[in-house]
Simulated scan of single mutants.
Amino acid sequence: MKLVSTLFLKIAVILLGLPVLALCIFLVPELANVAAKLLPQFALMKYLVSIVFYASAIPFFFALYQAFKLLRYIDKNEAFSQISVNALKKIKYCAITISGLHLLVLPLFYLFAEMDDAPGVIFVGLVVPFASMVIAVFAAVLQKLLKEAIDIKSENDLTV
């Protein structure tokens, strides 16, 4: 039963990466062109937007890889180990990095909202940083709980 559930989660992790890969291929160049049209006085804006979005894809895929490794540790009955805590710590740092990078692009969402007279666009721009921070907090809580469980387990192993 456990292998089936981790297999489902592994497939889910892979399926999470596919839309982001498609967004990187198809949507990021369009966003860069829109940014260049919004701010024609800043010639390098197109490249800055591309760099920020592609740079945020790197920690995203690294975090997915760490989640995949965490699922492999669960399959091998190594879930309560220091390597699992390290994987959660890396996921936490990746989520914080993604949130920070997307906050850098938030002024661009403001300019787009002003141009299009649609203030809801700013809230759309806040979705990714907010979701990333939720994931970072969740990973930090799991990391702390797992660390405490490992400590309790090692104390019990010493007393027996």
Rank of each mutant, 00 (worst) to 15 (best):
S5M: 14
T6G: 04
F8P: 00
L9C: 15
K10R: 15
K10S: 09
A12T: 04
G17S: 01
G17V: 11
G17Y: 10
L18A: 14
L18H: 06
P19H: 10
P19A: 10
V20L: 06
V20F: 08
L23F: 15
C24H: 01
C24E: 15
I25Q: 12
V28Y: 13
L31G: 13
A32F: 10
N33G: 06
N33W: 11
V34Q: 13
A35W: 01
A35M: 05
A36Y: 07
L38P: 06
L39C: 14
F42M: 14
A43I: 13
M45G: 04
M45N: 12
Y47R: 06
Y47D: 13
V49W: 08
S50T: 14
V52P: 04
Y54N: 07
A55L: 14
A55H: 07
S56I: 00
S56N: 08
A57D: 01
I58Y: 07
I58D: 04
F60E: 14
F61G: 08
L64M: 15
Y65P: 01
K69I: 09
K69R: 13
L70T: 10
L71W: 05
I74G: 00
K76W: 05
K76H: 15
A79Y: 10
S81Y: 02
I83F: 00
S84F: 03
S84R: 05
S84L: 10
S84T: 08
V85H: 04
A87E: 03
A87Y: 06
K90T: 05
I91N: 01
I91A: 01
K92V: 01
A95L: 04
T97L: 14
S99C: 04
G100W: 03
L101E: 09
L104W: 08
L104F: 13
P107E: 08
L108K: 03
F109D: 03
Y110V: 13
A113G: 09
A113D: 02
E114I: 00
D116L: 12
D116P: 00
A118Q: 12
P119F: 08
P119S: 06
V121Q: 08
I122M: 07
V124I: 15
V124E: 13
V124T: 14
G125L: 04
V127E: 02
P129S: 08
F130G: 03
A131C: 07
M133L: 15
I135F: 02
I135W: 00
A136N: 02
V137E: 03
A140K: 09
L142W: 09
K144W: 04
L145E: 13
L146T: 06
K147C: 02
A149W: 10
D151G: 04
S154N: 15
D157E: 15
V160S: 12
